[in-house]
Structures are given as C-alpha cells and as structure tokens.
C-alpha cells in the first residue's frame, strides 16, 4: 500500500431532488485509490457506484443532482471545490474515464482518429504529425490491428470490443494517473471481456497508472482488483483485499453476493439469490439499509445505523452483529 493515496473520497454524499423526495443515491461513501493500484467498487444496479464515479469528475448534471457533502481529494486538491475550468484540465489529463457502453460512447459523426486527436489537442498543443504518431501508437498499444487504416474509420465500422479499445485509447491519450472504468466490460461478451481486462492489466504494468473499476461482476473483481469496496444502497458496506473479501466475507450482503455466483451450488439446484430488492433511494428503511433482506437481522438493526467494524487488517464491514459473532467464535 502506498503511503500517500492518489485519490481519497471522504464521506461523499450525492442526493437527487426528485418528485418522490430527496433520493440519497450516495450517502456517505469513503474510499481511497493508491498510486498504481486497481480498486474495485462492487454492488448491484442502483447502489450508487456510477453516481460516485461521475461526481468525482463533476459530471453529474446539477440540478437534479446535488453534492450534499464530502470531499474528493486528488493529489491533495479537492476536486469538488474546483472551478469548471480547472476541473476540465483535470479531466482527461489526470483522470479519465471509460464508459460502460462502447456502442454509444463514441460520437457517430467523427472518425475515431479525429476523436482521439481531440483529446490530445484539448490538453496539449501538439502539431498534426506528432498527434498522428501518438494516435497510431495508442491504437497499437490497445491492440487494434493496422491502426493507420482504423483511425479513419467511423465508430459504426468497428465491433463492440474494438470500440471499447478505442475508448481506452482515448482515455490513455494524455497519460492520466487515474482511469475510472465504469463497468467497461458489461456490454461485451465473455472472451472480449477477458481481453479487455488483460489489456487494462498490461497497460497498468506499462504505465503504472491507477484504475478505479466499477462493476457488478464479482468474477471481474477477483481477476483484477487489489482492493475491493462493496456498496449497498449508497453506502459502503464492506472493504478489504480480494483475499479477505472472497475468503471470509463479513457483511451478510457480501456473503449473499458470493453465494449468488453460479457454480457454488450442486448441479440441479436453483441458484442462490438474496431475497428482496434494493431499497428505493428516496425511501430507505431506517437503521441498516440491508436489514429487510438480511438473514441475521436483529432488533437493533431496524433502528440503529451500523458503524464500520474493523474485523482484521484493513478489513472493514458495516455489521456489528457479525462482528460480535466472529468475536465469540474466535474467543
């Protein structure tokens, strides 16, 4: 673990003003990403992963969104306090982002070469020849064959996997120190997923940048992450290393997630699920937001918001009940 993390998100709160009331999409989330680390934010749809990521770069439309509190330190600067102009300097140059849908994340009316070039020229005054060379090298680096020809293609000429590679090339164009990848493999099929994940790994080894992966796919997490943060209903419920989370999950939600993976049950049995659904962010249950779906639920869970409990070496989970149980077991 590097002593001085690149990105520190502290108690971030993002609310949406809706007709049903204030939707607390992200309600006090903290995490940190060290230099050259791969950190995964995991959670099911609607738990606030993407909103947290977008608000790091100030990309949420305000209103309806509002940053209700918290700090986002990137190399010591609070990104939430920056002016739009300074924030634009950070975007793409120091932190860049890869999106979920490669099909729609590229502008259909420009060639991909043009779009990569735009990122380069936005941030650096480079002449055309140099930027061309860089584009070709970038496309080469992300594994696109014959980049000279491909850079004149329009997005619709490329397959989904190729487009995602182009998106990664765009994100890499100015050698950022942090790449936020918002479910970069969700829209791709499994073989392409593996290729893209390997590409991220190789690029990370080459360039030493940090990656914040956002995903709901635990198999992705297991392969790439150094550290995992599990989110539920806008809060962080568990954090730890891959080993800690997969070997001894401490929060009932994480346990449920892991049990839901196909392959953990004998053939012929139904797949395990967590009963119920994610609570409506405008109308969360009191106490622990997970308690209506939790099998270890106790009276105190319904009233008292749980604290983060330190289970072992930097392995935290927001469940005092389990904490007490483990204590008893180990004693």
């Amino acid at each position: 673990m590097t002593p001085d993390p690149l990105l520190i998100v502290k108690d971030l709160k993002v609310y949406f003003d809706t007709d049903q009331g204030m939707a607390k999409a992200v309600d006090g989330v903290s995490f940190r990403v060290g230099q050259g680390e791969t950190v995964c934010l995991v959670g099911e749809s609607g738990c606030g992963k993407t909103v947290s990521a977008l608000s790091i770069l100030g990309l949420l439309p305000q209103p309806p969104a509002q940053i209700a509190g918290g700090k986002v330190f990137f190399k010591g600067r609070d990104l939430l306090e920056l002016e739009q102009k300074d924030l634009r300097e950070v975007r793409g140059r120091e932190i860049s982002m890869v999106f979920q849908e490669p099909m729609t994340s590229l502008n259909p009316v420009f060639t991909i070469g043009h779009q990569i070039e735009e990122v380069i020229t936005t941030h650096e005054g480079v002449d055309q020849i140099e930027s061309r060379q860089r584009i070709i090298r970038l496309l080469n680096d992300v594994g696109i064959a014959s980049p000279e020809e491909r850079m004149q293609d329009y997005p619709h000429n490329l397959s989904g996997g190729q487009r995602q590679r182009v998106m990664i090339a765009m994100a890499l164009a100015c050698s950022p120190e942090l790449i936020i990848a918002d479910e970069p493999t969700t829209a791709l099929d499994v073989t392409i997923q593996a290729q893209i994940l390997n590409l991220f790994k190789e690029l990370q080894e080459d360039r030493g940048m940090a990656i914040l992966q956002i995903t709901h796919d635990l198999s992705v997490v297991a392969g790439v992450a150094d550290r995992i943060y599990v989110m539920y209903a806008g809060i962080m419920v568990e954090e730890g290393s891959v080993w800690q989370i997969f070997r001894e999950p401490c929060h009932p939600y994480t346990m449920g997630l892991l049990e839901s993976l196909p392959g953990r049950r004998a053939k012929g049995q139904d797949l395990a699920t967590i009963p119920g659904a994610v609570p409506d962010p405008a109308n969360k249950p009191p106490g622990c937001p997970f308690h209506p779906r939790c099998r270890y639920v106790q009276e105190s869970c319904r009233v008292q918001f749980p604290e983060m409990c330190d289970f072992s070496d930097r392995h935290l989970a927001r469940c005092p009940i389990m904490y007490a149980k483990r204590k008893v077991q180990s004693a």
């Binding site: 977008l54 950070v90 793409g92 590229l106 735009e118 936005t122």
Partner: peptide, 22 residues
C-alpha cells in the same frame, strides 16, 4: 444524455466545443 457527450466531458472537452463540434 448520450454517452459520447458525457465521455467528451469526462475527457476534458469544453461545453462550447461539445455544443458546436459534437
């Protein structure tokens, strides 16, 4: 609301340029 507009913003392109070029 298209992803490529968000993507362009995420890569630091200015509002003005997004409106007129994208």
């Amino acid at each position: 609301e298209q992803d490529f507009v968000t993507a362009a913003r995420a890569l630091g392109v200015s509002d003005w340029r997004i409106i007129f070029r994208h």
